[in-house]
């Protein structure tokens, strides 16, 4: 029996959708059902959490706590990427600077970023500057080290080609160095993104009077458990959303790289 092509495509699409949604749906239903009759203080019914979610976050908190957190995250993340790429390019293109800086960088990178919070509090207090600086100082390293590695690994035939066609200075940076290192830079940026989110949350948990992290800890301290759960849910959604956005960005920037890699695999 033959099926018309459009029906087949539709069936295929439906199958994919089923795969996509089946497990999340099952998990949510399980959560709903298993907690529906819950009298446990720590694990309130999902219904309660969801109704707390709307009341808690679709209010003044959206502008007073969520937005400032996200803005600090954005500022810190962008700062880390810009600084990391700049220093990484410098270190990656000069062998002797790299040898000089490598052990110190290895150490600084290995310091768990959260301990930077008390240090930066000494210098800048507990305001926005501290939190943004913490995010920059903690998320910088993966970008920096990956960029340096990517710049170092530029193909020498490609570099010779660029030189012989007079590609120097800013044009060389824009047309050769950055695109060539972009796969590594993006890998570093992905790692930096998750560190940035962690640092945004705990800098607010540790010392703050506003923000997402601060609010969630306040709920916990006041034993407002459904609200606390809704905060955890919101953080999860934020992480998921940012990761989704990053995936889009990555697919766009590295479209050439995927094809190029596949072509190389096919050849070998």
């Amino acid at each position: 029996m033959r099926t018309a092509p459009h029906v087949r495509t539709a069936l295929h699409g439906a199958g994919r959708l089923a795969y996509l949604l089946a497990l999340p749906a099952i998990l949510l239903v399980l959560w709903w059902v298993l907690t529906a009759q819950s009298t446990s203080f720590y694990f309130p019914p999902l219904r309660t959490i969801l109704s707390a979610f709307g009341k808690t976050w679709f209010s003044d908190r959206l502008m007073d706590d969520v937005l400032p957190s996200v803005l600090r995250l954005a500022a810190g993340y962008v700062g880390a990427v810009v600084l990391g790429v700049a220093i990484g390019v410098l270190i990656g293109s000069n062998r002797r600077i790299r040898l000089l800086a490598e052990p110190v960088l290895e150490f600084l990178r290995a310091v768990p970023p959260p301990v930077l919070i008390p240090v930066l509090m000494l210098f800048t207090g507990i305001g926005d500057t501290m939190k943004i600086t913490v995010i920059v100082a903690g998320s910088l390293w993966p970008v920096l080290l990956n960029t340096a590695e990517g710049v170092r690994a530029i193909d020498d035939v490609l570099a010779d080609t660029a030189r012989s066609y007079g590609l120097t200075g800013a044009a060389r940076l824009r047309r050769l160095v950055l695109p060539s290192a972009s796969p590594q830079i993006v890998t570093g940026m992905r790692q930096a993104l998750s560190i940035s989110i962690i640092l945004m949350v705990i800098s607010e948990m540790f010392a703050s009077s506003s923000g997402l992290g601060y609010t969630i800890v306040q709920f916990q301290r006041g034993f407002a458990v459904p609200e606390m759960w809704s905060g955890i849910l919101l953080l999860g959604l934020l992480g998921f959303l940012l990761s989704l956005l990053f995936g889009r960005f990555e697919a766009r920037v590295l479209r050439w790289h995927r094809g190029w890699r596949q072509a190389q695999k096919g050849e070998s």
Partner: peptide
């Protein structure tokens, strides 16, 4: 899809 959703949840969200 479930892994894609759970993985990016920052673990510090679990602090409270």
């Amino acid at each position: 899809s479930t892994i894609e959703f759970l993985r990016p949840i920052p673990s510090v969200a679990l602090v409270p």
